[in-house]
């Protein structure tokens, strides 16, 4: 007897009925997608930073790269100053102080900046913290502006001065090898 591989539904005594096809909807296998998303989630959780200063790199500014890094002193509160090649921005609100030329030559601009720094330093001191200054400067800037600015901030009671950099673990990147 010749046997066929076709499976049929045959009711007892009824006519020959082929099995209905195409009615069952197949589930999409999303296990691999879940795997990828889980890895992504872990990776992103590792890289998340809630520190506003560490997160916000200034736009349009090329920061220098370093392998070492220091921690902010205990009880230190930071005032942020961004020195671009064409402008100086003060504080987290990016209040425009003026251009670099104005900073070096215009007495009015210098007076305004000094009074702003003193106000911030007094405010921080009154809260029981230590005023610290974080300088974010473009790496193409001449040191004369940095030196001038440090002199300036020292006269406004900022003894703790920090430079903002991009951290790397690669020494050869710093040495230029």
């Amino acid at each position: 007897m010749k046997r066929t591989a076709i499976v049929v539904n045959r009711k007892p005594g009824g006519p020959f009925e082929p099995r209905p096809r195409g009615k069952k909807v197949k589930d999409l296998n999303i296990t691999s997608l879940i795997d990828i998303l889980t890895i992504l989630l872990v990776f992103m959780l590792k890289n998340i930073s809630m520190d506003a200063i560490q997160k916000n790199a200034p736009e349009g500014m090329l920061l220098p790269t370093t392998i070492t890094k220091d921690e902010l002193i205990k009880k230190g509160l930071v005032v942020n100053v961004k020195i671009y090649t064409d402008k100086i921005l003060f504080g987290m609100d990016n209040f425009r102080i003026g251009s670099l030329d104005e900073f070096t030559s215009n007495q009015e601009v210098r007076k305004n900046l000094l009074s702003l720094l003193k106000i911030e330093a007094d405010r921080i001191t009154n809260t029981g913290s230590i005023p610290s200054l974080l300088i974010q400067a473009d790496k193409e800037l001449d040191c004369r502006y940095i030196t001038d600015f440090i002199n300036f901030s020292a006269s406004a009671s900022f003894a703790n001065i920090y430079f903002s950099t991009i951290h790397t673990d690669n020494l050869t990147e710093v040495l230029g090898l």
Partner: peptide, 22 residues
Amino acid sequence: VVIPMLMTVMVSVHLAMIQITL
């Protein structure tokens, strides 16, 4: 929900601070 939120706050560059004294 979580992955787009994390992508927006993800740190692509790690900033560091270098302290100097006067």
